[in-house]
Design a protein around this nucleic acid. Structure first.
Lengths: 145, 145
DNA sequence: GTGTTTGCAAAGTGTTTGCAATTTA
DNA sequence: TAAATTGCAAACACTTTGCAAACAC
């Protein structure tokens, strides 16, 4: 009883993903990879992922969730988003793109990169190069103050 | 011995600032206001400000620093920046503008608003209005990985 | 078998809160 | 003196770390 249904084909795909990232295909990592990558584009925090895993019947610790998220990020499978000062969001979309941040709920939503353009950036401080540009569009219900 | 030099004129200015914000001119708030607003544009965290205050010989608690930063923010004298998921930055520049974030040092620097333009933003999710747009340009030394 | 991974428990960081004592207007 | 403010201590939320046991290859 693994707490989830994974086809052989899908399982192989995830094992491959982990192997190419130089990570062993452990029960915990396979389960988390399934949750992270098996449901389309996602923005999630460590807490949320841990909650989903427990609800899916997986047996693992918070530590492993944090470890796994960081390992996936280092491997380029996930990307950290700088948006909420209270927690780290991980994004399954690792291509350059921007975000809506819902200030009422804390939820994030992708804005496709190619629809947005940022112009007129000044040259960066001396001796520094631009690593990336994040655009965060903060939205809320009109009646909220 | 107050740990700092404040002219009568400057002290009056800060008292006025606090009064207009509906805040009593306490010793702690005057001292912090001096540090925050007496040195031009600044980006600071609660920790940094507390450190500066202690070094300047002020007697106050971390609690008061947090309280004061939030009160100043509510009064529109400061602005919170969403940039680093590990801490809250407060900016003395409350006009719309964007930021460089130095990933090596954690330092921030302003980018004047009028030099940057963001085009092609999609319409926000249904029932939501755009509160603001934050552009964070992440920079680092070229050799860092 | 051997190096990797897990997960507990503890510590760490940055922030908030309850409340009695102090201070300001 | 009444109301606002301070600051201690404790709680909090989220994250990281040390290390022995368990596991994957």
């Amino acid at each position: 009883m693994t707490g989830q249904v994974i086809t052989h084909r899908h399982d192989d795909y995830l094992r491959d993903l982990l192997q190419r990232a130089g990570l062993r295909a452990t029960r915990q990592r396979l389960g988390l990879a399934e949750l992270i990558f098996g449901r389309g584009e996602r923005h999630l925090t460590a807490e949320e992922l841990y909650g989903e895993a427990i609800q899916a019947g997986m047996r693992l610790s918070q530590t492993t969730v944090y470890n796994t998220l960081h390992q996936f990020t280092e491997a380029g499978l996930l990307r950290e988003i700088l948006a909420d000062p209270r927690r780290i969001y991980f994004d399954t979309n690792v291509d350059p793109h921007h975000h809506f941040l819902d200030e009422d709920t804390g939820e994030m939503e992708d804005i496709p990169m190619d629809s947005v353009s940022v112009m007129g950036l000044p040259t960066p401080p001396a001796g520094k190069m631009i690593e990336g540009v994040d655009v965060i569009v903060r939205v809320r219900r009109p009646d909220t103050h």
